[in-house]
Amino acid sequence: MVENRPWLTFLTHFVLICGVVIVVFPVYIALIASTHGPTALSSGMMPLLPGAELWNNVVQVLTEQRRGVAPFWLMAWNSLWMAIIITVGKIAISIISAYAIVYFRFPGRVLAFWLIFITLMLPVEVRIIPTFAVVANLGMLNSYAGLTIPLIASATATFLFRQFFMTIPDEMMEAARVDGAGPLKFFRDILLPLSRTNIAALCVILFIYGWMQYLWPLLVTTDPKYYTLMMGVKRMAAVADADPQWNTIMAAVVMAMLPPVLIVIFMQRLFVKGLVETEK
């Protein structure tokens, strides 16, 4: 620090505490709501201190059957699978395509690069109907394949790996070749272990990405068996105005957002690395 001015330090902490309050506030409210019984929330003023009903609300969320929504555990299961398949799939296909683009020279290489690049310019939101039609024609509606495969192509992950491979000294591959390693062996023995940190960082980012998906599952699932948590809590909340059960809905919302939030808190270093590097 260049100088030490007490009032400036005070101001700094004041600003940060205000910031943290703003950021935490909605989630705090949700947490509080999830610890009260149904009556405490419908009586006009929402309480600001925790109640004792958290466990009951959680049990209710986990056990009750709501109309038009799959059981909570099933949706959680679907979300988990969707996030995992997307994470693994994206990393797998990105790392091998980056490998091909960096370590081989083949006709069509630049074209392949540009085709991958184009995906950046085509978010699901701008091609809703035709993509839905393709998935429907392939018979992939209401399936894990339909939920995940169309989201697996990834320019950002490919670029991240490409960028990383370019920083590995050329001699590494030459030494491996002199040592008798072919392309697959080099990939397995040298490149993959060297990419560990990048893969871990991407895992964090992509798991969160997969978990958050909303529009896509909304389009390709009509069978509640394949609903994800994001769809489920939205559906629960949508009927809440008519049938105010905010306590259980908030309990569900808190549970639904918990896994990625915990990942960010406990893997902050990887999360930051992943987020910053994929944007390079």
Partner: peptide
């Protein structure tokens, strides 16, 4: 390279 039965020492060593 591997079939030529040579060994190479690189400037930056290229250790794994």
């Amino acid at each position: 390279p591997a079939e030529r039965d040579i060994a190479m020492v690189f400037q930056n060593y290229a250790l794994y």
